[in-house]
Amino acid sequence: MLWVSLGPRHPVAVSLFIRGAAMSNTVPSSSGFWKRNQQTLAPFLFLAPGMLMFLIYVLVPIFESIWISFHDWDGLGAMTWIGFGNYAELMDDDSFYTSLYNNVIWLVLYLLSIPAGLAVALFLNQTVTGIRLYKSLFFFPFVISQVVVGLMFTWFYAPDFGLFAKLTEVLFGEQIAVLADERYVTYGIIIAGLWPQTAYCMILYLTGLNNINPEQVEAARMDGAKGLKLLWYVILPQLAPATFIAMVVTVIGSLRSFDLVSIMTAGGPYGSSQVLSYFMYEQALSEYGFRMGYGASIAVVLFLIMMVFISLFIVRMLAQERNA
């Protein structure tokens, strides 16, 4: 009535029309909780499934393992609280120090897969005849099972018919049984592990090389940079994310190197090739006895070692990002 009586061009009528339109487009204060907090809650809802899986399958088992490590338990009967008894026994166990020493060797030598993967990626990151065939050959170790890798290298090292045994016989006049010699067995298994790990690092670096800024490379070449200087000052800084992922995955892989040890030597000869992950399995789940508490204490020690290295990598990466 007021609109009709005042006319559509009257100032009061225009003001009332604008206020009415604004009120119609505004969410009333009495609207639902979801409409008022949709933008705030949406990210958490998308993250919720992943966070729930991480909680159930990662965080809960970690704390449960720590709790079990303070008990004497066979996995079936009642738990008996013994405090730090398992850890005290671990400190007096010679097999633990042998496994820890072998893990250190694994960690140091396994890191060779990172520069090896980078070198292969630089070789494959070019357009030459037959490059697809070369890429397929280098991808092959990454897609096959660790069990298959272990069997292949077991036959490779085997006396009498193994290729490596034949080569050592030709070169040195006698065969070297790598997997039966306490001096060489750990190094032989590590070489087998380096084959697929190098392929994994190569894939990471190939992905990183495809995302390199070509303008920076061209500018560096115009300034006279080439060869190792171009690689060190221009290309490698842009590959830092790939290097970080390769470092973390390689360190974790070296510390939980269970598959190859189990397939190739089962910790032998005389426990000389044991690592912490296999030692944990042997104590907790093998025919030697179901000592779940003792195995959990080994798992906790292995977890703490992993956390130290990963924390150092993360701190260093954050420091580099702040200085960049």
Rank of each mutant, 00 (worst) to 15 (best):
L6E: 00
P8F: 11
H10F: 13
A13D: 08
G20R: 10
S29L: 07
S31R: 11
S31M: 00
Q39H: 02
T40Y: 08
L41E: 00
L45Y: 06
L52E: 01
F63G: 04
E64N: 09
I66W: 10
F70A: 12
F70E: 14
G75Q: 00
T80I: 13
T80W: 12
G83E: 13
F84K: 01
Y87F: 10
T98E: 07
L100D: 00
V104P: 14
I105F: 06
V108I: 15
P115W: 14
Q126T: 12
F140A: 15
F142P: 06
V143F: 13
I144Y: 11
S145D: 13
V148I: 15
V149L: 09
F156A: 04
F156E: 05
D160L: 07
F161H: 07
L163Y: 11
T168P: 07
G173C: 10
A177Y: 15
A177N: 15
L179A: 08
Y184C: 03
T186R: 10
G188I: 06
I191F: 10
G193I: 05
W195K: 08
Q197H: 10
T198I: 08
A199Y: 03
M202K: 07
I203V: 02
I203N: 02
Y205T: 05
Y205Q: 00
D223L: 02
L230H: 09
P237T: 04
Q238A: 09
L239C: 04
L239D: 02
P241E: 07
V249H: 09
G253S: 13
T265G: 10
P269K: 01
G271S: 10
G271C: 07
S272I: 05
S273W: 12
S277T: 06
M280C: 08
M280Q: 10
E282T: 05
A284H: 05
S286W: 14
E287P: 11
G293A: 10
S297H: 01
M307W: 02
V315T: 15
V315M: 15
M317P: 03
L318G: 12
L318D: 11
R322P: 04
N323G: 07
N323P: 03
